[in-house]
Design a protein around this nucleic acid. Structure first.
Length: 271
DNA sequence: AATCTTTCCTGCCGGC
DNA sequence: TGCCGGCAGGAAAGAT
């Protein structure tokens, strides 16, 4: 499922095919995603120049000057650049048609993704206005985590996955970064020291950057291929390794539940 | 066939 | 009392 690295790899894979070009329309086969795709999206986009393709958290933003196309991959979404005549397959819900003879095709079997149109300053859009800082910028560091968790009883894992505190950290990278720092996912966030938060923030940046680099190596396969960033075989330290030996100490990895999500951790390495 | 997956939203709770 | 932020739980759809 797409987390921040997958979204960023997708962005890098499509950006040179979009920026400076124009939309000529859109094809909506199934507009019922997380929210309805605007029925007149094709008319809205017609003739608009794509000035920039950026990312905010896990949202992709297509800046068209007087408006912005907002796209979220949800749990199962993917984007592919294809020749305009390519026949659609199952779950290919939306095509964004370009003036280059190519289309940007959105596939999303579970339909938790989103394709929306926003006018005005997109940073004020309801989906974006409340988001915390980007984890790969200087605005995110141990001090921010420390200050925003004073008095909080929620677990550190829940805090890392709270997009109001920091964006883009999903279940996989929350588990992996906590292992890397030796912090139990169950630890109350308000009881973690500044020193440990500085290590945790660094681990988050390193974990995300490594995944982006791994995905970047397969970028050439993005166009006219299966569209997957191609690094989902990545080796994890703890994620989905319950019952298997810890790669550092050999202790069996444990699985527990926080909210409705699974946490994986080494009971020896993480305290 | 129940379970698993992510994100946003709703509503409850305790504190002031 | 009423408001607030924090926090838990629910819903969406499809694969297995």
């Amino acid at each position: 499922m797409p987390e921040l690295p997958e979204v960023e790899v997708t962005r890098r894979g499509i950006v040179s095919h979009l920026e400076g070009h124009h939309f000529v329309g859109a094809t909506l086969r199934n507009p019922s995603l997380r929210w309805p795709v605007p029925h007149d999206l094709g008319h809205t986009l017609r003739g608009l120049k794509i000035n920039a393709v950026t990312r905010r958290g896990k949202y992709l933003l297509f800046d068209c000057g007087n408006g912005t196309l907002i796209l979220h991959l949800g749990m199962s979404g993917s984007l592919r650049l294809l020749p305009a005549a390519t026949p659609p397959q199952k779950h290919d819900h939306v095509d964004l048609i370009l003036d280059t003879g190519m289309i940007l095709r959105f596939k999303d079997p579970r339909r938790f993704g989103a394709v929306l149109w926003a006018t005005g300053d997109v940073t004020h859009h309801a989906l974006l206005a409340q988001l915390g800082p980007e984890p790969l910028t200087e605005a995110f560091d141990g001090r921010l985590l420390y200050e925003r968790t004073r008095g909080r009883r929620a677990s550190i894992k829940d805090v890392l996955m709270n997009s109001r505190i920091v964006v883009g950290i999903g279940n996989i990278y929350a588990n992996e970064a906590l292992f890397s720092t030796g912090i139990s996912p169950l630890t109350p966030a308000g009881r973690i020291s500044m020193r440990r938060y500085e290590k945790l923030a660094q681990a988050i940046k390193e974990t995300l950057n490594l995944s982006i680099e791994a995905g970047g190596s397969s970028l050439r396969d993005f166009v006219n291929s299966d569209g997957s960033p191609g690094y989902f075989q990545q080796q994890y330290w703890v994620y989905q390794r319950n019952g298997q030996p810890c790669r550092k100490c050999g202790t069996a990895i444990e699985q527990t539940r926080q909210g409705q999500r699974s946490s994986f951790y080494c009971p020896h390495c993480q305290r």
